[in-house]
Amino acid sequence: MKRHPALVPLSHEHHHNLSFAQRLRRACSDADAAGCEALIENFRQHYAAPLEQHFQLEETWLRPHLDEATSARLLAEHQELRALAAEPATNPASLAEALISHVRFEERELFPWLEQHLPPELLAELQEKLG
C-alpha cells in the first residue's frame, strides 16, 4: 500500500517493529529459550529507545488531529507497550502480541483515516516535521 510521504517514515518503523515482534512471538512460542532471550536483549538495545521516540512523534504530531476515541486508543496502546517494554523479559509473548496489534491498527485504520481526512497542507506540514 502506498503511503502519503508524510507517513512513510513512521510506516517504515512499523514494518521493522512488526518483523521484530513476529520473530519474538515465534521464538518464544517455539520454546526456544535462547532465541527468545537473544531477541529480548536485541529489543533492549535496538528497539526500546526508538519505539519511545516513535510514540512521542505520533502523540505530538498525529494525536491532535484525531477524534477523542481514537486519541484515547492511541494513548492506551502506547501506555500498554511502554509498560511491556519496560520489562520485556517478564512477558515477551504479550509484548509481541501488543506490538503486532498496535502496528496493524495504525497501518490499517489510523493512517488510512489520516490520509483521507487531513487536508493536503496539513499532511505537507506533517511531512516536514516527521520526515
Rank of each mutant, 00 (worst) to 15 (best):
L74D: 01
H54A: 08
C36Q: 04
L122F: 05
I100V: 12
E58H: 06
E68Q: 06
S101Y: 03
V103R: 00
L7D: 02
R26F: 01
R44G: 07
E125L: 07
P112N: 08
E80S: 14
P5D: 08
H14G: 03
E58R: 06
R26P: 01
P112L: 04
P9A: 10
E97A: 13
A96Q: 02
Q56W: 13
E80H: 14
F20S: 01
E106A: 10
C28D: 01
T90V: 11
L7W: 01
R73L: 14
H4C: 03
C28R: 01
W61R: 05
N91H: 14
D30G: 15
V103A: 04
L18P: 01
T90L: 15
T70A: 10
A98E: 00
H54V: 05
G35K: 05
E87D: 14
Q22W: 09
T70K: 04
E115H: 06
W61E: 06
L123C: 08
E58M: 11
P120E: 07
L99N: 00
G131D: 09
Q53T: 10
L39W: 02
F55V: 07
N42T: 15
E87F: 04
R25F: 11
Y47G: 03
A27G: 08
P50V: 09
L57N: 10
D67H: 12
L39G: 01
Q116H: 10
R82I: 08
L81E: 00
E58G: 07
C28A: 11
H102E: 07
A85P: 00
A96H: 03
A31D: 11
S71Q: 10
R25M: 14
L81F: 02
I100N: 04
R73Y: 09
P9N: 09
R63V: 11
E52T: 12
L62C: 06
P112C: 05
L66F: 00
Q53S: 11
H15P: 01
P50S: 13
L7R: 03
A34Q: 14
C28M: 07
N17G: 15
E107R: 08
E58F: 07
V8S: 00
R44L: 13
A98I: 05
Q22S: 04
A34L: 15
R23Y: 02
R104H: 14
E13W: 04
P88E: 02
A124N: 02
E109A: 13
A124Q: 02
A96D: 02
H14A: 06
A69L: 13
